[in-house]
């Protein structure tokens, strides 16, 4: 069972319960924000056997997305859902997880919308400088990538050097390219759990990039947009996709 337990100080941490008598260590409160779906593909977690996972809405969305992307299939995991109002949700299968979470629109909170408005109110130059300054602190520790359930690639683009697609060093261009590339790769896939921002040791507000893309998708395709790659058809008439 992958859930939350007390950590050091006032922090909480992911815990992995393997015996029924240890289940008492499980907790759930406002501090329990980490997106635990990040552990589902992890080799050593899988080696412990089929997991059950404590899943709040962002985790449920991640599970749905991982199913879309064929990273999870029926029978791989058991899901103990927790609704936004704290009710325990019983899901007999992963399809029911998808059915439940599809009914909850992925919308931004008023605070998130306000932060985006503030960015939009800047001139293009101001916005560019805002990001350049934020990115200048990036040390390329890849905590954003490692904390993200959607960054499950075994070999990330940034780890390829023949050919080298994007600049690896943590200099101005390298950091900027990395975060733009990552935001684009998450377009339509990010569940807005906020873990990238929380994980960042230098507090770069990375989620703003993803939230802007989420807002654009809602504006252009509606709140219940079907996941584009899952809807892909080989006989699509558009040329650019082939």
């Amino acid at each position: 069972m992958i859930g939350y337990g007390e950590g050091s100080g006032n922090r909480v941490r992911a815990i992995f319960i393997q015996k029924p008598e240890d289940a008492d260590r499980l907790i759930l409160d406002d501090r329990c924000l980490q997106n635990l779906a990040v552990y589902l593909p992890k080799h050593e977690v899988r080696a412990l056997g089929k997991p059950a996972i404590v899943a709040r809405v962002p985790v449920l969305r991640s599970i749905q997305q991982l199913v879309y992307e064929q990273q999870l299939k029926e029978g791989d995991i058991a899901v103990i859902g927790v609704s936004d109002d704290g009710q325990v949700l019983d899901f007999p299968d992963l399809k029911s997880v998808g059915d439940f979470v599809s009914k909850i629109p992925l919308t931004l909170t008023p605070d998130e919308q306000a932060a985006l408005k503030k960015l939009e109110a800047m001139s293009r130059e101001e916005r560019w400088n805002f990001w350049l300054e934020e990115m200048s602190n990036c040390i390329k520790c890849y905590a954003c990538r490692a904390s993200c359930p959607m960054c499950y690639c075994e070999r990330c683009t940034v780890d390829c050097n023949q050919p080298q697609w994007i600049s690896v060093p943590a200099h101005a261009l390298g950091s900027l390219e990395w975060h733009i590339m990552r935001a684009m790769h998450l377009a339509g896939r990010c569940v807005n759990c906020g873990d990238c921002t929380r994980a960042c040791p230098v507090k770069i507000p990375l989620a703003l990039l993803n939230q802007r893309i989420i807002a654009d998708i809602v504006d252009n395709f509606g709140e219940k947009a079907e996941y584009a790659l899952a809807a892909f058809k080989p006989d699509d008439t558009e040329d650019f996709i082939r």
Binding site: R13, A14, I15, F16, V38, Y39, E44, V45, I139, K140, C141, Y142, A143, R145, A146, S147, A199, P201
Partner: peptide, 17 residues
């Protein structure tokens, strides 16, 4: 080592700070 690192997500934050 396994018990301690089950929750480690494999980023480089510890080394870089």
């Amino acid at each position: 080592w396994i018990a301690q690192s089950l929750r480690c997500i494999g980023c480089g934050t510890c080394s870089y700070v």
